[in-house]
């Protein structure tokens, strides 16, 4: 129970610290932090799929992009749509899409599954490119961020700091829920399926349904991240649904490490900061990102989080390994 209290205190401290940021950071950095939080959700959703369930998908961007486009299209076409309604429409669409695509693809395993997700992503991309009248094709869609309607009052979230607070609370809470999710019955079921799927079946778990539910859930989380991405940039183009966006999430997750829940959050931070600085310095920043990726995969396969854990264990040498109990699995997965 001590640990439980600690984590609650930690969460409160974290949110308070987050709430202070607009007073400390410049607008530019606050804007970047907003972006980091949004991409952290995207990375966390992917890690639930890859790190926890062991499903390698090359098509996560189709959900991110779908969420992003649905939000933009809804805001463009529905007069007076509030911000949260747009997000909910987007979320609901990706839930349906995730369920349908999952039912089709999850019959296949391993590399077949991975290749099929890649193919589906390419299909989504092609549709977004060609369906000019809805998606704007190459031109993309510009939107204006709608107001936040809280029932009794409407708040404008057009400024950098007010939007940051919205993201901190809504996306932050969603990430927090993802963390909680890894401890719930479903979260554990998914994790154990990767450990020993056969045994799970013989213990009464329908593993096919579980996988479908998880695929749908992570897809919807990615869609949610996509919707907030649209709201953040107030613009969406086919880049959001392209293979590049899948590559981006792979990079974030691999840089941060799949072994821990927070690894991908760290990965999103590093990725966005690097992208911002590198792309200002050199037009070949994707090359440098690629080199970092290869380096990470070859020499630091557990990602930054693994390195940090190792260093921490060095310093507190006496710390016994078994104290963490259920977490053990997460740390040893890769």
């Amino acid at each position: 129970m001590k640990q439980k209290n600690n984590s609650y205190i930690g969460i409160i401290v974290l949110f308070l610290l987050g709430a202070l940021m607009p007073f400390i950071l410049k607008r530019y950095h606050l804007n970047m932090l907003t972006e980091i939080i949004i991409f952290a959700l995207y990375a966390v959703s992917y890690n639930l799929l890859l790190g926890y369930a062991g499903l390698l998908s090359f098509g996560h961007a189709m959900f991110f992009g779908l969420g992003a486009f649905v939000a933009a299209v809804a805001i463009t076409h529905i007069q007076g749509l509030t911000l949260l309604s747009a997000v909910i429409i987007s979320f609901a669409t990706t839930v349906i899409a995730g369920f349908l695509i999952g039912s089709l693809l999850l019959r296949h395993k391993g590399s077949y599954f991975a290749l099929l997700t890649l193919a589906f992503n390419a299909l989504f991309y092609a549709v977004a490119t060609k369906w000019h009248s809805v998606t704007g094709g190459d031109d993309g869609l510009s939107i204006s961020r709608p107001e936040l309607n809280l029932g009794f009052t409407s708040l404008s979230v057009s400024s950098v700091s007010s939007f940051y607070y919205l993201i901190l609370v809504v996306v932050g809470a969603t990430i927090l829920f993802c963390w909680y999710f890894t401890h719930t019955a479903m979260g554990k079921t998914v994790l154990l399926m990767r450990e020993n799927e056969e045994r799970m079946k013989f213990l009464g778990y329908n593993t096919n349904i579980s996988r479908l539910i998880l695929f749908t859930f992570t897809g919807a989380l990615a869609g949610l991240a996509g919707a907030f991405y649209t709201l953040h940039f107030q613009f969406v183009s086919i880049s959001a649904i392209s293979i590049d966006m899948t590559t981006a999430v792979l990079l974030m997750v691999f840089i941060g490490g799949t072994g821990t829940f927070w690894g991908p959050i760290l990965g999103a931070f590093v990725y966005i900061v690097f992208q911002n600085y590198l792309s200002n310095i050199t037009d070949r920043w994707p090359l440098f990102m690629g080199i970092i990726f290869v380096f990470m995969v070859l020499y630091v396969p557990g990602g930054l989080s693994h390195t940090i854990m190792t260093i921490r264990q060095w310093f507190s040498g006496r710390k016994d390994n078994h104290g963490d109990g259920p977490i053990k699995v997460e740390e040893t997965s890769s």
Partner: peptide, 24 residues
Amino acid sequence: MKRSIIRTLCFLSVALIVSLPMSA
């Protein structure tokens, strides 16, 4: 691990403030 999440994020926030060059 829970504490480590928090520590890391605290670290991140501080790093964000410190590491960014001031454009004065």
